[in-house]
Simulated scan of single mutants.
Amino acid sequence: MTYWQSKLNYNPLKALLESENDAVIYFTKRDLIEEDVKPIEYLWDFPEVQKILKKQQPDGSWKPKGKNDENSEVKYSLIETWRQFRVLTQQYEMNKTHFAIKKASEYLFSCQTDEGDIRGILANQYAPYYTGAIMYLLIKAGYENDPRIEKGFKWLLKMRQNDGGWVIGSPGMIGTKLSRDETNDLTSNAERETMKSFDPLKPFSAAGTGMVLRAFAVHPFYRKSEYALNAANLLKSKFFKKDNWNSYKNPDNWVRFQFPFWWNNIISALDSISLMELSKDDPDIKNALKWLINHQENDGLWKVSYSTIHKSPDKKRTFKTRLWLTLTVCRIFKRFYENKNQLIFH
């Protein structure tokens, strides 16, 4: 048993290796046991991957069922492409050497504005949290040195609140009080101009900052930047606490998980922070790791949700997701307990 495994109450490797999920078994052997495995391209021929690729459109996008961009102000194809791109790049580690990923990446970049953000999910309004989450995947796909990624980082840095974090909604909407109807119209009507009445004095949102930080955490330069470290410090300070913003305000949102990542939660946040090599001895991080240890199930896996405000999903239906989440948690523990160059963060 390795040192990081000894920190857990139950052995997760047995459940992962006996899961009959070939992709999970592959990454368990490669990342946790450090066995020699076939080249990553081996996974790209799996039936579940090919099923996704067959639905890709000639322009590189994916079209959602029942939605048509031509009749909508919201780019539903952008949302659906992000959804599928998450699976291909985060779950199966596909990259731009594959023609389908290159096509999808170019489609995503085509949604980047001259300012630098990726726009369309909230019609014509800014969405730094979506921009960061999409850039995270593009960087993982091999575009870390692309000038369009650099342009995106410059925009994200420009969109920070004064405390160094980001908000969950369009920053242009936080300087003025808006009704629900007005907010809905702004985020669904592309004829509305981008609102720019910022209020940078308002505090950061952990939900928004967690999604943006993913892009910084996987970039070889920006993960070490003062900006990223400051944002990580803000993010961890809110672990298991209420957010500063109404969206995803309840602390239970920290313990409701998805894989591949979507919204911010304790696993996605720790994944970013562990990639940035912060210290496991930091009080906030130590507390989060302790929570994961205490909430591991006796089958060696973690549940998809420990929330009291959301409906508890069926374990059989979510077994595959539980495997991926457990693999991610194990990677996190391995980074924290085997990395000799961690930053002590105060």
Rank of each mutant, 00 (worst) to 15 (best):
E73N: 10
V74C: 01
V74A: 01
K75F: 12
S77N: 13
S77E: 13
L78H: 07
I79V: 14
I79Y: 07
T81P: 02
T81R: 05
R86V: 06
R86E: 06
V87T: 12
L88P: 01
L88F: 00
Q91N: 03
Q91F: 04
E93K: 13
M94Q: 08
K96E: 00
T97R: 09
T97W: 00
H98S: 13
H98D: 15
I101D: 00
K102Q: 05
K103M: 01
A104W: 07
A104I: 05
A104G: 07
S105R: 04
S105C: 04
E106M: 08
E106I: 08
Y107R: 05
L108Y: 08
L108K: 10
F109I: 12
F109Y: 13
C111L: 15
Q112V: 13
Q112A: 05
T113C: 06
T113W: 15
D114V: 09
D114A: 10
D114W: 08
G116P: 13
G116Y: 10
D117G: 00
R119S: 03
G120A: 05
G120C: 10
A123H: 10
A123S: 13
N124P: 14
N124R: 15
Q125G: 01
Y126V: 07
A127N: 12
Y129C: 15
Y129A: 11
Y130N: 09
T131M: 11
T131S: 10
A133V: 01
I134S: 07
I134V: 09
I134Y: 05
I134Q: 09
M135N: 03
M135C: 05
M135P: 02
Y136P: 00
Y136R: 10
L137T: 06
L138Q: 05
L138I: 10
K140R: 14
K140A: 00
A141S: 12
G142P: 00
Y143A: 04
N145L: 11
N145G: 03
N145Q: 07
D146T: 01
D146E: 00
P147I: 14
P147F: 06
P147E: 02
R148G: 00
E150G: 09
G152Y: 06
G152I: 02
F153I: 03
K154Q: 13
W155P: 11
L156M: 09
L156W: 09
L157H: 04
L157E: 08
M159Q: 12
M159K: 12
M159L: 14
R160A: 05
N162Y: 09
G164P: 12
G164V: 15
G165E: 03
G165A: 05
W166T: 15
W166L: 02
S170N: 02
S170R: 02
S170D: 08
G172V: 11
G172I: 09
I174K: 12
I174G: 10
G175K: 08
T176L: 03
K177P: 04
D181A: 13
D185W: 14
